[in-house]
Design a protein around this nucleic acid. Structure first.
Length: 419
RNA sequence: GGGAGGGUGACUGAGUGGUUGAAAGUGCUGCUCUCGAAAAGCAGUAGACCGGCAACGGUCUCGCGGGUUCGAAUCCCGCCCCUCCCGCCA
């Protein structure tokens, strides 16, 4: 959410931002400003009446005065007409504020969609094969370890069972990642995967992405399954004032992630690239705004080092205005090379949401001058199980249809080869 | 599922109709004392919004929404949330 004052003072910037992001609702800025003007006028009118009311009250408290009582009744009836109008205006403004995106950092490339993303760097090289590398779900030794048929029988399309060594490999990977990032001083957390509505609004998933989220027992418990640990991690400090004197709060959260994948029918239907459920380690930072841009670079570096330690070739993208999320001021994606598909695929995503999320979460800190200000928040994929598993399977496959286990994972799975 | 209690400022915690935006304590800031620190003493310290160049002024906020009243943190109604006890379960 943007600051209404900022919008009032910089309507052009906001409108340009909407256009840059290839969104079509820039007229909403004028709507907000008009409502805001009306709201402030009305507010002044009401406040003047309230002042009269308060003054009269104090006088009555000292000595009862019949004339004042009449005046009070008059003020009251006026207020009862104006108050609902003010509330309506406020609600309308708020509703519209939720629709506006964050302001992108100047270093974010302008572009209409994914075609505008800029490759910043590549690390490593594509592995060379003396045979035709297969997609992960076609590798003989892996095939039987993914049971999509029974997954569909039990839970529907885009669900599956991972079995045997593939299940073991996932545990190895996650344990490795968990240790890798906690060594980098992210506090480990096992987080709730069901959250209340305010957590979804606070992080910005509601109202925009409501159709991506599973609702649980809407008539009773009314909880939502998280699509990422970002939600419980961000909401962890909701409505709090943080002490950041000892540096930023850095967390890593492990959770299962649930996504309805509405509108992706027919996309990535083979294999385990896109499912309704997966597991992920996510990192989240609450920090002083002065530090957020350098921390954003640090976060990216963390994920890069992780992939490097697994020996996986990847590229880093600076995501353009048309392809970053509404709350993001800047976002890097890491795409890891998947030789079976002959493509780079997104495995990591690293965002600085500046104060956009903090304003919704109502999360502040006390700055050097003792002022309370909104924090900046950043989030980053530590390790998303399926995507990294796929990368490992496709990059480390052998001609004989076995898969070599990356060296750093061996101590966690206790074997060198799968299949 | 049955029963009970409760939601007050950064935090702990008083306050049951009239200058209570709110006692006290903690924390924080400044000053005094000290070579310095600690301790002690004194003083200051909520947020949001509106108007104003500013000084400053105003309104709102004691979980949320409504009601009673000239006036509500305080009374009434609805909702949300939390805690404890019993039962059930992991």
């Amino acid at each position: 959410m943007l600051d209404i004052k900022f919008i009032r003072e910089n309507p052009k910037i906001v409108k340009e931002e909407i256009k840059k992001r290839n969104m079509k609702n820039d007229e909403i800025v004028d709507v907000i400003i008009a409502s805001d003007e009306k709201k402030r006028k009305l507010q002044q009118e009401i406040e003047e009446l309230r002042k009269q009311q308060n003054d009269a009250n104090q006088a009555i408290a000292k000595d009862k005065d019949g004339n004042l009582l009449e005046k009070m009744k008059d003020i009251k009836s006026k207020l009862s007409k104006l108050d609902p109008k003010l509330k309506m205006l406020e609600d309308e403004i708020k509703k519209n504020l939720f629709l506006l995106p964050n302001i992108a950092h100047e270093s974010v490339p302008v572009g209409p969609d994914e075609s505008g993303n800029v490759v910043l760097k590549k690390w490593g090289e594509k592995p060379k094969f003396d045979f035709e590398p297969k997609e992960h779900f076609k590798i003989e030794s892996v095939k039987n370890l993914i049971d999509t048929e029974r997954g569909a029988k039990v839970s529907g399309a885009r669900f599956w069972y991972l079995k045997g060594d593939l299940a073991r490999l996932e545990f190895a990977l996650m344990q490795y990642a968990f240790n890798f990032y906690s060594d980098k001083e992210f506090e480990p957390m096992i987080v709730p995967m069901l959250v209340r509505e305010p957590a979804m609004y606070g992080t910005g998933f509601f109202p925009a992405e409501k159709n991506e989220i599973y609702t649980v027992n809407a008539d009773g418990d009314n909880l939502y399954l998280v699509g990422t640990a970002e939600v419980p991690l961000a909401a962890y400090h909701m409505n709090e004032i943080l002490n950041l004197e000892n540096g930023p709060k850095k967390y890593m959260g492990y959770s299962s992630c649930f996504r309805r994948e509405a509108g992706t029918y027919g996309k990535d239907t083979k294999g385990i690239l896109r499912g309704h459920q997966f597991n992920k380690i996510e990192m989240f930072i609450f920090c002083d705004p002065e530090e957020s841009w350098s921390l954003h670079e640090d976060l990216l570096k963390c994920s890069e080092e992780f992939l490097q330690s697994l020996g996986l070739h990847y590229q880093v993208l600076n995501m353009c205005t048309g392809d970053i999320g509404t709350p993001n001021a800047k976002k890097y994606d890491i795409e890891t090379w998947m030789p079976g598909q002959n493509k780079y695929r997104e495995t990591h995503s690293c965002s600085n949401d500046t104060d956009f999320q903090a304003r919704r979460l109502n999360c502040k800190f006390t700055d050097k001058d003792g002022k309370k200000k909104f924090v900046h928040t950043l989030n980053n994929t530590g390790c998303a199980d399926l995507r990294v598993l796929i990368a490992i399977l496709e990059n480390y496959q052998q001609k004989n249809d076995t898969v070599i286990v990356p060296e750093v994972l061996r101590k966690w799975i206790g074997k060198d080869v799968i299949g």
